[in-house]
Design a protein around this nucleic acid. Structure first.
Length: 268
DNA sequence: CGCTAGTCCTGTCTGC
DNA sequence: TGCAGACAGGACTAGC
C-alpha cells in the first residue's frame, strides 16, 4: 500500500529523469488513463522539469505546465529501467520512454491506481488536504479538524480531503505512537493528545522516508528495490503478537471498514 | 451534512 | 491436495 513515504521515496529516486525529454508514450492499457487534458502527442519531445509529490500522487511536471500524474493504488509500481531491457512482466499498463536511455514502467496488478494527463494542476488537487509534513500542519489545524466530528480518529486522519498521504499502515503506527485508540471519536481527543498525534504522524512519516518506505508486499522504489521500514513497524500486521511497549497482546479490529491494529492496554 | 457501505481488482491466504 | 471463497485496501459514489 504505497502511502506518502513510499511515493516520496519514488520521487527522490526519480531525480535522474529531470531534464530529460519524452521520446515515447506507450499506453498499453487504455482504461488506466483516467483524464486526458492533453494527448500523448502533445508531450512528445517535451522536457521533464520537475518531479513532485502531493499526498499519494506522483507528479511528473512537463514543460508548459503539463502534469503526468500517477497513483499506485495499493499494488502499483513505478520504476526506471534501461531502455534496452525487455519488459516481460504482466500488468504493465504504461511506459514512458525518455531520451537519456531510461524508460519509466508503470505496473499495477489490481488496477486501483491510475494515470492522469492533467492540464489544470490546481483543479486536480483542489480537494486535497494539507501535507502533514508541511509547516501548515499545526496542532491548531488538527484541533480544528476534530472539532464537532464524531468519526473515529483513524478515519479522520485517513481522509485525504483533510490530511493528504496517510494510509492504513501509517494511521495505525501513528496512533500507536501517540497512545490513542483508533476508534476514539475524533472530538474526544484532548489538547495534549492532539499535539501528540500531530507529532507522531510527522515522526512516523519522516522516519519511514529515511528508511525508503515500507515494503509489505508490493512496494518498490524508483529502482525497483524494496524499502526497509517494514522492519520498524510496531503494530501493523502484528495481530496476536506482543506489544513492544507493554507486552500485552495486540488486537485486530475493523474500524470504518479498515483492519486496525492496536494495543488494548497502551492506547487509550 | 455526516457517515456507512458498496464498488472496482487480482494475488495470496484460509478453511473445508 | 485441491479448490472455492475470503481478504487486502485508496478513492470515489450512492444512499440513508
Amino acid at each position: 500500500m504505497p502511502e506518502l513515504p513510499e511515493i516520496e521515496t519514488i520521487r527522490r529516486s526519480f531525480s535522474p529523469i529531470i531534464n530529460s525529454k519524452i521520446a515515447g508514450v506507450n499506453i498499453i492499457r487504455e482504461d488506466i488513463l483516467k483524464l486526458k487534458d492533453f494527448t500523448a502527442n502533445d508531450i512528445l519531445g517535451k522536457l521533464i522539469v520537475d518531479i513532485r509529490r502531493r499526498g499519494k500522487f506522483l507528479d511528473i511536471v512537463i514543460e508548459q505546465d503539463k502534469h503526468l500524474i500517477l497513483h499506485l493504488g495499493m499494488s502499483g509500481k513505478c520504476y526506471m529501467v534501461d531502455e534496452t531491457i525487455l519488459i516481460n512482466e504482466p500488468h504493465v499498463h504504461f511506459i514512458l520512454n525518455l531520451d537519456n536511455n531510461i524508460k519509466i514502467v508503470y505496473q499495477d496488478p489490481r488496477r486501483f491506481g491510475g494515470v492522469w494527463f492533467v492540464g489544470d494542476y490546481n483543479k486536480f488537487f483542489s480537494h486535497m488536504g494539507l501535507e502533514p509534513l508541511s509547516d501548515d500542519f499545526t496542532s491548531e489545524y488538527l484541533t480544528n479538524l476534530i472539532k464537532n466530528r464524531k468519526v473515529a480518529i483513524k478515519n479522520l486522519i485517513l481522509n485525504q480531503r483533510l490530511i493528504a498521504g496517510i494510509g492504513n499502515i501509517y494511521a495505525d503506527e501513528a496512533l500507536f505512537l501517540a497512545g490513542i485508540k483508533p476508534n476514539r471519536p475524533a472530538h474526544t481527543l484532548s489538547k495534549k493528545e492532539v499535539t501528540k498525534l500531530r507529532e507522531a504522524i510527522r515522526e512516523i512519516l519522516k522516519y519511514s522516508i529515511e528508511q525508503r518506505g515500507t515494503t509489505f508486499r508490493d512496494f518498490r522504489d524508483g529502482y525497483n528495490q524494496i524499502g526497509n521500514f517494514q522492519n520498524y513497524l510496531k503494530v501493523y500486521g502484528k495481530k496476536n503478537q506482543s506489544c513492544p511497549n507493554c507486552g500485552d497482546i495486540l488486537t485486530l479490529e475493523k474500524i470504518g471498514g479498515r483492519s486496525s491494529h492496536y494495543c488494548p492496554s497502551c492506547q487509550k
